[in-house]
Design a protein around this nucleic acid. Structure first.
Lengths: 343, 343
DNA sequence: AAGTAAAGGGAAAACGTTTTCCCTTGGCGT
DNA sequence: ACGCCAAGGGAAAACGTTTTCCCTTTACTT
């Protein structure tokens, strides 16, 4: 209704040439006007071009642009595991931030497998992706190779497994782990179980080490049998398995420190299954998914500002002018939920 | 280590021309070998080309391909709301299925807003997307225009708001709603509350109508005051708000039939806040997120096979040869969880 | 033995941009 | 008057594919 004629242009045969024709100018001029090149078009030329663009509902073909400029508007996000709500939250945040800058998100699930990650990296090189965001990177051959290229590589949550000081967005996992342990100690919880994901993730490693360190320094070292990290991929299974082990061995704990909320979910379920109730030892997790308030009022969790990740990541992508690769460390905060009355 | 020389090719200046040069054949031949055109290359030509491709780690530029073929390998997935774990689950499933067919997923969050949806549709037209998957479509001008184009449009969960019999993947929401109501009736629950999302979604509408119909036919019509659909966007808030209203009005129910799990989460929380416990009336939801088993053992839910959606969707995209636009109706199943002992 | 078909392969056009040259005006300073 | 510079704008190259014509050689049919 807002446009004059019925000019929907069925399938988009509308190229820059047609715009140029309608505006009575050259292709070059249209391109310049669209891209806002100053001093290259008079006021009425600009007006004519704009009119034609609007009338034809023209939008430059991405293929043409990519080909010419040797780079696309695509930004790849390689997530280690989309089943984890955390990844979804970050992806959502990134998407919004990218949209603002007229970039487009391509989302891939690497399932934490190096081969698959490489496959995607290859694909994204073929797509001439503007940047690649790694939500939980794993070491892989192509990743190493790509580190030398001009394509910005942004590491999120987990540091670059290659070791270099690559651009990074995340929290201070050491501080966060320490904070959690100190809080537990302050509540007199001196016999915790530490249940964690595989230590291949730098984030997990830092959290676990910080907790153990703080406990050791406080004179309550956590012995190996209370440090559990089953080599499973599924966080729920990790927690479940760990607590079952704990129960079988008759080890009692006064707190469950988990490196992820999902692990805590699994842990608690195993406990309920084993004893009929969840006991009185509080559960601690990381991530603090928004749903926790609704379905896990028993879970204290380290809140990580995932909603702010998108902006930080896109910032890092665009400020590629920067020399020293910067790290964006965002604030964390422990959200305490009363382990109290659930009945 | 697996390749001979140190030939990582820093930034991908490796085009089809370089492959042709190395193999000692023409560009055309390389293209044909890569695309598997039969009867156009002798055995050793093929071998030479393959060798060169492998040695140079060549992969065709997507931009070049898209430009020439006037279509890209991108498939757009427009999700109404990525914060909903359901959407994330479907997206994950689609991604896997696409990968298998060498397609790439572009994920966009329309936030259920027509303008944003149109913005994305426009972008995807510019990208010459191979297909567009609408995870909860909303009516919008460009959507109507696109329906006439050759780009496949796949509607998921919600039917095409334009009314046409467009390709669709989802469950039989009418049957599912009826099943749920019948189950509740069979348990003697005759005073249910029906709490639902905005009825702009065809899926929600069908569920609600089926429930109401079954109850009415059984001689227990559900009066308006027990049918609640606050016009909020957030499902959690919908459920919360609805139950608060119910409580304030002193209306008692013996079951909570919610059109989504998140709504049930909100509903139960409001109930706990109001009375101190969750009462004995069972909760019912739709979607049955895998996490329910871990964090919501009190919630019965209509399981929807989201993991199977990806394959069905990709099938529909590729079988565009088909004439009669097909609908893929997947099976649903009510998962009963004992509302029993939560203490 | 001639004619024909098929196999194998190359040259070049086309896809839609952006950008580098180049040309033409006017206006200005000397 | 002369030279210069800036503004405004066009022609054409280049980006990397796929595909349509071609052309040559070989094998097979009559």
């Amino acid at each position: 209704m807002t446009r004059k004629g019925g000019n929907p242009a069925p399938d988009q045969p509308v190229s820059i040439a047609s715009v140029a024709r309608r505006a009575g100018v050259s292709i070059a001029t249209v391109s310049r006007v669209i891209n806002g090149i100053a001093n290259k078009a008079s006021a009425d030329t600009v007006a004519k071009v704009r009119e034609a663009v609007a009338a034809l509902d023209y939008r430059p073909s991405s293929a043409g642009q990519s080909l010419r400029q040797r780079k696309s508007r695509l930004v790849a996000v390689l997530a280690a595991n989309m089943a984890n709500p955390t990844m979804a939250a970050i992806a959502a945040s990134v998407e919004v931030a990218l949209r603002e800058k007229d970039l487009v998100m391509v989302l891939c699930d690497t399932h934490d497998k190096p081969e698959l990650q490489d496959e995607y990296l290859k694909e994204m090189r073929a797509q001439q992706a503007r940047a690649i965001v790694l939500l939980g990177a794993v070491a892989s051959p192509l990743l190493a190779a790509l580190r030398g290229s001009t394509t910005p590589l942004i590491f999120v949550n987990r540091l670059d497994p290659g070791g270099g000081a690559s651009p990074f967005v995340g929290i201070d996992n050491d501080a966060a782990g320490a904070d959690m342990a100190r809080h537990a100690l302050s509540r007199g919880l001196v016999r915790p179980a530490i249940i964690h994901a595989p230590l291949t993730s730098s984030a997990t490693r830092a959290r676990v080490e910080a907790m153990a360190r703080v406990y050791a320094e406080a004179g309550h070292p956590v012995p190996p049998e209370r440090r559990l990290g089953p080599p499973l991929r599924d966080h729920l299974a990790i927690g479940h398995h760990a607590v079952r082990l704990l129960v079988e061995q008759g080890l009692s704990c006064d707190a469950y420190l988990c490196t992820g909320d999902l692990i805590a979910f699994g842990a608690r379920k195993a406990l309920v299954e084993a004893r009929g109730d969840a006991g009185s030892a509080p559960f601690f997790g990381f991530d603090d998914n928004p749903l926790n308030d609704w379905v896990a009022p028993w879970l204290s969790s380290m809140r990580i500002p995932y909603a702010a990740y998108g902006e930080a990541i896109v910032d890092l992508i665009l400020s590629e002018n920067g020399e020293a690769p910067r790290q964006r460390i965002l604030p964390h905060a422990l959200v305490i939920r009363p382990a109290a009355g659930e009945g």
